[in-house]
Amino acid sequence: MPATLTGLDLRIAFLYGAEMNIYGDRGNIIALTRRAEWRGLAVTIEQVGIGERLTPGYHDLYFFGGGQDKEQIAVAADLARRDNGDKGATIREAIEADAVALTICGGYQLFGHHYRPHNGPELPGIGIIDVTSEAGPDRFIGNSIIATPDGDLVGFENHSALTFVGPGAAPFGTVTVGAGNNGRDGTGGARYRHAYGCYLHGSLLPKNPWFTDLLLTQALARRHGPVELPPLADDLERAAHNSAARRAWATR
């Protein structure tokens, strides 16, 4: 284990940051960056957009947020293209080689096999997390809590899709407030290796600092081996987490 983290670098890919950045999802990038920099790490963020190539094996952590329908359709089409490098295959190989991914909402759906809208053609995903999504009859809007084995995640869900977890992935946790993946089976989010997906905006990471640190630890381990992140003064983050959780129970 390195004696000090200072000078270690972390490479983040912000997938389709221009198109898929709705509901404050870039707050997750901010939280990852700040909490890494506060530990003396050097962070680089590369925004990878439509028509751009992704360097194989380069990034430690991929972030993929949600977007409007129009943008999500354009992004799904770009992910299916093979003429400018196969981004789906690049990310899939990276996840198999211990890279980390956080995907939210539309990004979560596109990390799965497909999203089937009410009308219009099916959007193919890149099939990294074994989930499928389809348009549902209702929109799930509200504060939400997912209880995972490692701790609670609190955020805000806003989706009409129903997502179902297949045998090749594990539910990320149990939804204790809100609808979670589909409002039916009680599951919230999904994970495969170090790729995580869920519907929580909020932004998710700033007020769930334990999860941010888990992602950072796993991302650093890919190239730098096991690291232990020194603790930070998280009073404000904990207060926000607790008040958001109380708000979730009060408004459910």
């Binding site: 404050g24 870039r26 805000f156 408004t251």
Partner: peptide, 9 residues
């Protein structure tokens, strides 16, 4: 707005 995510924008 019930979702405060917008503060991050």
């Amino acid at each position: 707005g019930r979702d405060v995510s917008w503060l991050w924008d």
